[in-house]
Simulated assay, not measured.
Amino acid sequence: MASSLTIRPVLTKRDRKAFVDLPFRLYADDPHWIPPLKGEAIGLITPEKNGWFSHATAQLFLGEQGGRVVGRISAHIDTLALTMPAEQGFGPGCGQWGLMEAESEDIFAVLIATAEEWLREQGMKRVLGPISMSVWEEPGLLIDGFDHAPTVMMGHAKPEYRGWIEAAGYAPVKQLFTYELDITKPFPPIVNRIIQSGEKNPRIVVRRVDKSKFEQEAAIILSILNDAWSGNWGFVPLTPPEIADVGVKLKPIVFNDLIRIAELDGRPVAFMITLPDLNEAIKPLNGSLFPFGWARLLWWLRAPQVRTVRVPLMGVIKELQASRMASQLAFMLIEYIRRAAVENYGAVRGEIGWILDDNQGMRSIAETIQCDINKTYQIYEKTL
């Protein structure tokens, strides 16, 4: 019973290990859950290993019952998010919770109440969740699309969590979609004509990134990203410490032909990042690189062959977003990377997203190239 439940803060390395270990038991029978590499999962919640903590603070909680860990949750405050306009989702007095897992609704209710109380003590008046832990990591609760595994850097959840969250007084505030498509098929004729027109335009150059100049290329992409996304709901600018950490994590799966930058009159104005689905490689490792996981993963990284590639980020600078040029650049980026993904990595499936439900520009592009929504994630809000 919940009456015998103990909630305590995560304080030690052992506590963090227990926090990371819990989902391995709760999802043991779920064929679509992807066990994260435990080292990466511990790094996410360790301030010294996650650049997000340079502008954020968090408290993790464990629920224990009968000598077992039966639930977990994080409560956190992003100081950059507090400076954003409230109409864009965050804003003054807005905290978050995430990384929630629980054996039962009773346990969940106590965990979320504990997270809410911690946020109130920090002066928060409103809460959004689940956000685990930065909006750039795994925002939202999966509410549709449980029948297949998530791609790299996307979340999974139990179907019952939705009812538990709503029963705790939370209302939906935003949906995020991922779109999938068969990338072995050419795009519709109208899209190809738009691409061909762009190829004839001497002002446009779409180039591969140069991984040997990783920091310089990352700076270009970051500049475009922070401009292109600045008006989006939930936007919080990425900071240099976060970029440095992301670079370390993603550099092994960065390939020159899967990341492109579009230049107009020699100026970088758009980009698209595509990643081979690392989840296909790590799923059999069950969270551990030992004793043979290192060798398997390193072998895979040498020349990955995957079924799926994912587009986690793309953007066009704000001054072009209302123009025809924006969609033309997007179609060119998608087509060039589609070809590379099929020819060089054996991919047959692409996934684009997440895309905000009110991002009509990106949703229109996805629908024009005949994508279908395959997963829906939902973010909730509550007044504290």
Rank of each mutant, 00 (worst) to 15 (best):
D15Q: 06
K17F: 10
A18P: 09
D21Q: 15
F24Y: 14
W33P: 09
K38S: 06
L44M: 13
V69N: 03
V70N: 03
I77A: 03
D78E: 06
T79A: 08
Q88S: 05
Q88W: 01
G91N: 13
W97S: 10
A102N: 03
L111R: 01
I112R: 04
E116I: 13
G123F: 01
R126M: 13
L141E: 05
I143M: 13
P150K: 01
P159I: 02
G169S: 05
Q175H: 15
Y179Q: 05
P189N: 04
P202R: 04
R203E: 15
V206P: 08
R207T: 09
A218T: 14
N226C: 07
T239R: 14
T239N: 08
P241E: 07
A244L: 13
P252R: 11
V254N: 04
F255A: 07
L258W: 04
I259F: 06
V269L: 02
F271M: 14
L275V: 09
A281V: 07
A281M: 13
I282L: 10
G287S: 09
W294H: 10
R302G: 14
V309K: 00
L313T: 09
L313G: 07
V316H: 12
L320T: 02
L320G: 03
Q321E: 11
A330D: 04
I334R: 01
I337P: 00
A341G: 05
G361Y: 07
M362N: 01
R363K: 13
S364T: 14
E367G: 01
I369M: 00
C371F: 02
I373L: 02
N374P: 06
Q378R: 15
